[in-house]
Simulated scan of single mutants.
Amino acid sequence: MTARPPAAVATFGRLVELDAKMAHGILRYCDHIVAVVDAAHAGRRLKEILPYAGRDIPVVATIADAHRLGARELVVGASPPGGAADPAMVGEVAAAAGLGMWIVHGLHTRLSRVPELAPYAERIVELRHRPLDERVATGRSASLGGNVVLTVASDCASGKMTAALELWQGLRRRGAAAEFVATGQTGMYIAGGGAPIDAVRSDFTAGVVEELVLDAAAAAPDGYVLVEGQGSILHPAYSGVSLSLLHGSAPNLLVFCHDLGRDQLAYFDQPVVDVAEEIALLERLSVHQRGARVVAVVGVDRGADPATAERSRARLEDRLGLPVVPATAPGFDRLTDLIAEF
């Protein structure tokens, strides 16, 4: 990957919210970020607000502040459900563009077509609108010899990308051939490749996933392909993307991610489906392709009391008969050990 310019991430007062998950992922895995722009938290250090990101960088109030710190790129790091831009976002982007900065975003809105931003279109990188070869799936992923690991979950924003990235890094540290397949805007920004699966026309979603997996498998023959999951197979809004990922990647191994403290779906007034029921459904849906089994569950605790979170994981492990690991470095080490057995 080529060197990236120093960048700032804008979160529009949403830094600690779920809809800033793009910012959270980038801040955790990208070392070229020099500042966060968020007026609601300005004057503090990121490590005080998001300790798990592991970054000691300033949170500033304005784009001009970030520019003075050396940022030459602005990443739009938060968006509402549906990925539409609002006036506050447009204003921040216009300020950055006026300072000569590059803009990177994963919104469904095409910022390059917003009238006040059109003069800066050549410096706007739109991750959800990159050209893709649309193709119908053929089922070829089901014939692969290596391991294809898909991360799945009980809801959106439940750790699927993080688990896939941690497995990718962990397997490579062990000397295994492994490739990461990014399927959303955050993973694409981190990895420098992939495709925005939720922006592909539905007839071609599984086909685009299949091609990504086949390319990754060719780069890691008889190794591991780690596929970033999206949504949940039973989510009332996002299940179509989840099913296309399952069919297009034809995994033989699944890692299930679950937020231990979440009873209701994020942004929806509906309960999270029972984990055991959803795991059984995922395994049943995969049986006519390659056949996949859930190897382990990542139990996300989002800052809960450690003892309480550990008890929740232990209860879930007993009920499922599957390893339930925390979303921490030791937990991901254990998860990597489990996957490396295949």
Rank of each mutant, 00 (worst) to 15 (best):
V241H: 00
L246R: 03
G175P: 07
V149F: 05
S239R: 04
A219D: 15
A296L: 06
L281T: 03
A66G: 01
G223D: 06
V298Y: 00
A199P: 07
I190C: 08
G192F: 05
T151S: 08
E283P: 10
M89P: 13
A39R: 05
G291K: 05
A97H: 05
G193Q: 07
A71K: 09
G159C: 11
A329F: 14
G54Q: 04
H108Y: 05
F256V: 06
R284I: 10
D198W: 02
L214W: 08
D269L: 06
L320M: 06
V36H: 01
I197F: 00
G231T: 03
L144H: 02
G70L: 14
H108D: 13
A85C: 10
Y52S: 13
H32K: 12
T183H: 11
A88Q: 09
M188V: 00
L243G: 07
V36W: 03
H247E: 12
V273G: 10
I63L: 04
F204W: 15
L234K: 09
G13V: 14
L117C: 06
M1H: 12
D38C: 10
Y120K: 04
G100V: 06
G299W: 00
V241C: 02
L226N: 02
I339L: 15
A85R: 03
A96F: 00
D155E: 07
A296P: 09
A88L: 13
R334T: 02
I49Q: 12
E116M: 08
A163H: 06
E283Y: 09
V75S: 08
A206E: 12
L214S: 01
L246T: 08
V255Y: 07
R302Y: 10
H288Q: 10
V181N: 04
P80A: 13
V148N: 11
A78M: 09
V213P: 06
A314F: 01
V241W: 03
A296V: 11
R130H: 00
A296I: 01
A276W: 02
V16L: 14
A94N: 11
G25Q: 02
V104W: 02
L335V: 00
G240V: 08
G299N: 01
R135C: 12
G303S: 11
A178N: 11
T328V: 10
